[in-house]
Amino acid sequence: MNKLAVMLASVLVGGSISAAVAADYPTKNIDLVVPFDPGGAVDATSRIIAETANTLLQGGEINVVNKSGGGGIVGQTFASRAAPDGYTLLAMTSSVVTNPQMKGASYTVEDFLPVGLYNLDPEVIVVPAGSPFKSAEEFIAAAEKEPLNIVIAGIGTSHHMSGLAIERVTEAKFNYVPTKGFGQQLQAVLGGHADGAFWPMGEASSHAESGGVRLLAIASDARDEKFADVPTFQEAGIDIPIWATFRGWSVPKGTPDDVVATLSDLLRQVYETPAYTEKMSEAGFGPVYRDAAEFRKVIDEYAKLTSVIIEENGLGK
């Protein structure tokens, strides 16, 4: 009886402490850990967000901290072990989901609490401007006859898996050509050395706009406003509703709910700032906002899709 009282008391005290923390959160600067080098997509978007967020945030500033290495694992591991007090945020990307399974990272996706999502980058099928394939149907039909050479960022990346997903729902066969770095992939496609590529829309859009490459289909539930004549995967007869890499914020497991709510609300306010959405769009990242619960759904969905493919194809360690 006595024990129970102590436990109850400590829970109550503990609860009230964390509430007190949240009431005046933040009181110091918040580190936003970017697990990649400065200059990449995650870094650029994080800095654009921090710029606007710091005009809204009271009591502290968001500092972008680059901790790169190991394909994101170094920074992600660092964030998973940080104190769950809301002063360490992780710029969370889809690699958090696959890294434990693929590369043996020590954390799991459950070690992070989703805060909010700010960018969804749907996969697109890209062919060189001089390619004989004018539509996704022609592309798939050709791949059913003979495997097409497809440039991807690496074996086991989300782009490779999107190809494997297409192979699951159609008769198409692809010969994957793993090529590190977007620049070299671009060289292979612009130069016509490969038949096509699976790229995130964010990177493909400016090259499609300039006419160097052609987009055949987008793995999203709706067409892109800028490329209204590019059909979705489902419209083109590829039964994959959405295949998108995501970018958002998460915090270490155990962070108080109201801190998560404060941060999630901050991200929403950032999204509602016109200067922010304009800058994100210019840089090629379509701004969106999904709150913590919605973000969790996106993560779970992605985890479900990828774990099947990883298992079926014997990827990972």
Binding site: P38, G39, G40, A41, D43, A44, K279, A283, G284
Partner: peptide
């Protein structure tokens, strides 16, 4: 990276 930060590709 430097261009992207300023919204240029």
């Amino acid at each position: 990276g430097a261009l992207a930060i300023h919204g240029m590709v």
